[in-house]
């Protein structure tokens, strides 16, 4: 059991990295990666939301949707739960860490529409994970997201003073960098 969970931990965070392999969650990945502190903050917020979301979504699926045979409602119900959780995180941050709330700005509520969160919830269903496995999968996915966004933030900070050709300045060079990172992360596929 533990070995299985460890495998999921490595697989979901590095091998099938949610941003670089599955292409989910690109919006905050590109939007909040200008500075490393903000990126770390965003990563932590995403870990919190995804872990909790996978727990609650998993529980609802196992104990309400499955027994009543209405699994087709999973999309709607999962989105409801995720939206509520993100609102909760927003309120929490606004009250207790206002500086992080200000720096994340509009990208915090964007975690709601972030396909990575819904993607994890649906993957858990698709792969028939139990609740605990689902939570570990969610946590690992979010950790993978945090790793990639922090790396990109670090690269972007270093790139700020580089001599970038005018047509590449801004988003283009960031996307090229992300592409190169994705190629690099392909190297992990030999791990498992």
């Amino acid at each position: 059991m533990v070995k299985e969970l460890l495998v999921i931990l490595i697989a979901s965070s590095l091998v099938n990295n949610v941003v670089l392999s599955q292409f989910l969650g690109l919006c905050p990945f590109l939007g909040v990666s200008k500075k490393t502190n903000t990126a770390i903050g965003m990563g932590v917020a995403v870990i919190f939301v995804i872990t909790l979301a996978s727990a609650v979504a998993g529980a609802i699926y196992q104990y309400i949707l499955l027994p009543l045979d209405i699994t087709y409602l999973q999309t709607i119900v999962f989105i409801l739960v995720i939206a509520a959780l993100v609102q909760f995180v927003e309120m929490f941050l606004k009250k207790f860490i206002p500086a992080l709330y200000q720096s994340l700005g509009v990208y915090l509520p964007l975690i709601t529409t972030n396909c990575a969160v819904l993607g994890v919830a649906l993957t858990n269903v698709q792969k028939n994970y139990g609740i605990l496995t689902g939570i570990v999968n969610g946590f690992a996915t979010a950790v993978g997201f945090t790793i990639s966004i922090v790396i990109l933030a670090g690269i972007r900070e270093k790139m700020r003073h580089n001599d970038i050709p005018e047509s590449f300045q801004g988003m283009p060079i960031v996307l090229v960098t992300a592409g190169l990172m994705a190629i690099a992360f392909c190297g992990f596929s030999g791990l498992l």
Binding site: L65, L68, I70, L80, V81, A83, M91
Partner: peptide, 18 residues
């Protein structure tokens, strides 16, 4: 009923948290 119940629960939760 299920979607309604989840929505109601979520709403109450957010209200209290708010």
């Amino acid at each position: 009923a299920v979607v309604g119940a989840v929505g109601l629960f979520v709403g109450l939760f957010l209200g209290v948290a708010g």
